[in-house]
Design a protein around this nucleic acid. Structure first.
Length: 297
DNA sequence: ATGCATGAGGG
DNA sequence: CCTCATGCATC
């Protein structure tokens, strides 16, 4: 059809609303992700350009502007992409050797920065204290990946739940649908996001690889096991929530005795009230961190 | 997508 | 007990 080289489709807000499946490039079989992309943040783009986005199940999950204006003939119109640039040739980056097998089982997720990758020759002390501690995480990189992850996940026709199940089935860190959701929304602390990123990146690379060999390989992988049961979630009444919130505003960290009193007043289990405060504080923090990412929907 | 629950780690 | 990272359960 059209041999136009299109890339990520973004809207005026800089949000990605569509992309192209990268299954049509013959030369990239497993060397696409986990690439040491430096200045370029466009690992999501390849060549080709269908106007319909469909997953490996043959389902159409999105249409890339079914109008005659989205994909202009020779005008690679670029609405307002904030970061992603389209300076990418049809050829893939490089046959990254063994970058695919990394085991970030725990923290210490090396804050590999663009600069570091560029100097893989010597690998000396990193003169970059910028990436350290709590607020030294590569936020924009994570943000970029989160956005990408979702697009590619959808291209594979997988739901957050399936990814979670697959992640649990595979070796390595396991995560749930909740985690996937929160990651995509960046409704987590930068630290968590940084830890999750390599895991998802690796998994996604493999998933795309299997997808090329046949969707069945991919699907058999997405198994899923039943799960354990747990205490039923307490549901506070709107009134109780109001009272709790008012207390929280006055004091987000009530003492044990105060908690006891509040619990008695509302007639809820003391432990439940205590946990409510804990969660409230945590939610507040995570919500605040979002501003750091400043990229919510 | 989000609320409450769980558990590990730290004091 | 708290914080934090996560997840089951539920909206």
């Amino acid at each position: 059809m059209a041999g136009i080289t299109s890339q990520i489709i973004t809207n005026a807000q800089g949000q990605v609303i569509g992309t192209l499946p990268l299954l049509l490039n013959p030369s990239l079989t497993g060397a696409t992700p986990t690439l040491p992309l430096q200045g370029l943040q466009g690992l999501q783009v390849q060549t080709v350009s269908p106007q319909i986005l469909f997953n490996n199940q043959g389902q159409i999950i999105a249409t890339v502007g079914n109008g005659p204006a989205t994909v202009a003939p020779s005008t690679s119109v670029q609405p307002k992409t904030t970061a992603t640039s389209l300076l990418q040739s049809p050829v893939v980056i490089a046959p990254s050797p063994s970058v695919l097998k990394s085991a970030p089982t725990l923290s210490s997720a090396g804050p590999i920065t663009c600069a570091d990758v560029a100097k893989v020759g010597q690998l000396v002390n990193k003169p970059q204290p910028a990436v350290s501690g709590e607020e030294g995480i590569n936020l924009e990189e994570i943000r970029e990946f989160a956005k990408n992850f979702k697009i590619r996940r959808l291209s594979l026709g997988l739901t957050q739940t399936q990814v979670g199940q697959a992640l649990t089935a595979t070796e390595g860190p396991a995560y749930s649908q909740s985690a996937i959701c929160r990651f995509e929304k960046l409704d987590i602390t930068p630290k968590s996001a940084q830890k999750l990123k390599p895991v998802l990146e690796k998994w996604l690379a493999e998933a795309e690889h299997w997808n090329q060999k046949g969707q069945q390989n991919l699907m058999e992988f997405v198994g899923g096991e039943p799960s354990k049961k747990r205490k039923r979630r307490t549901s506070f009444t709107p009134q109780a929530i109001e009272v709790l919130n008012s207390y929280f505003e006055k004091n987000a960290l009530p003492t044990g005795q105060e908690i006891t009193e509040i619990a008695r007043e509302l007639n809820y289990d003391r432990e439940v009230v205590r946990v409510w405060f804990c969660n409230r504080r945590q939610t507040l923090k995570n919500t605040s961190k979002i501003n750091v990412f400043q990229a919510q929907q």
